[in-house]
């Protein structure tokens, strides 16, 4: 069985026929070739696959592509606008919020979700909001600083 889906990813509309069992993360990575979204586990925990679906962070390994039919998806590739890094991307760079880089796209998009709701989070709130994203390299110390950096910058911009 194949099912047609139409998904807008980073502003571009894609129409494809997919098996219903195809996970959104594989649709993004393999059908569309956008490999910035990663797969780190198989139990919906690590958060390497987080993308924004209709503006909210979701684990794309736990969504079927058919569920995203009609949705707007933002992946890490779509976060910078006109060559301008998003403050979160900038924050991760400035504060050394990444080492191997594998968890980074999911981490940034989960943090994006947080800052939408809470533009001025405490360290504790940042840590709590990122509990669905594992990082094995940084000990999270600089990730917290990166998110704080972005929050400050976004507040100034707003």
């Amino acid at each position: 069985m194949k099912v047609p889906v139409t998904v807008t990813v980073n502003g571009q509309v894609y129409q494809r026929e997919v098996e219903p069992r195809l996970l959104l993360v594989h649709f993004i990575r393999e059908v569309l070739g956008l490999t910035g979204t990663h797969v780190g586990c198989d139990t919906s925990q690590c958060g390497a696959c987080v993308v924004l679906m209709d503006g909210k962070a979701v684990k794309s390994c736990t969504v079927f592509a058919v569920q995203a039919d009609g949705a707007q998806i933002t992946t890490i590739e779509g976060l910078a606008r006109n060559g301008q890094l998003h403050p979160l991307q900038e924050g991760f760079w400035e504060m050394h919020g990444l080492q191997c880089g594998f968890c980074t796209p999911g981490m940034i998009l989960a943090a994006y979700d947080l800052l939408q709701r809470n533009p001025n989070p405490t360290d504790e709130e940042i840590r709590h909001a990122l509990e669905g994203n594992y990082c094995r390299c940084t000990g999270y110390h600089n990730i917290v600083r990166a998110v704080r950096y972005a929050a400050e910058k976004l507040r100034v911009q707003a």
Binding site: R29, E30, G33, L34, T35, G36, T37, H38, V39, T75, I76, E77, L79, A80, L85, Q89, F92, W93, E94, H96, L98, G101, F102, T104, P105, I108
Partner: peptide
């Protein structure tokens, strides 16, 4: 110094083995 390798990672353009086809 901030890292020179980071721009590719923060924009989703790192190349890990599973990204290759």
């Amino acid at each position: 110094m901030k890292r020179r390798e980071d721009p590719r990672f923060i924009t989703g353009r790192g190349t890990y083995v599973d990204d290759l086809a």
